[in-house]
């Protein structure tokens, strides 16, 4: 599923026009993005949480050439799957 399909499904479920559904999806994504850029933790019950992680510098290797490269410290987002979503995914696998 991509963003356009998500917008169409939200429009259908909530009885919104595509235009309004697009504004809604963009608003939600912009809010999530803002939180991530600001280093805020996001917690959505039943879905999961996004938390900022810092990674220190390290010496890595270019997997193609084997050459050593200095990897700079960086920030990334770690997503932890919520309990309900985890069960939904695992349940689907068992069937």
């Amino acid at each position: 599923m991509n963003k356009a399909e998500l917008i169409a499904e939200l429009a259908k479920r909530r009885g919104l026009s595509l235009k309004i559904a697009k504004i809604a999806v963009d608003t939600i994504i912009d809010r999530l993005k803002k939180a991530i850029i600001n280093g805020e933790r996001i917690e959505i019950r039943g879905f999961g949480s996004f938390s900022p992680r810092h990674y220190g510098p390290y010496i890595g290797r270019n997997p193609k050439t084997g050459e050593k490269v200095q990897v700079k410290p960086k920030r990334l987002t770690y997503f932890k799957v919520g309990k309900e979503l985890k069960e939904m995914i695992m349940g689907a696998k068992k069937d």
């Binding site: 599923m1 998500l6 909530r14 939600i28 039943g46 879905f47 939904m88």
Partner: peptide
């Protein structure tokens, strides 16, 4: 609140069907 719930619910249901979800510009 209902719109926000639906947004996450749609993603959850899609994933539980075994389909990946790609949101351009987000992840």
């Amino acid at each position: 609140g209902v719109i926000a719930d639906s947004f996450f619910e749609i993603i959850k249901e899609t994933l539980s069907k075994g389909e990946n979800v790609k949101i351009s510009g987000f992840g």
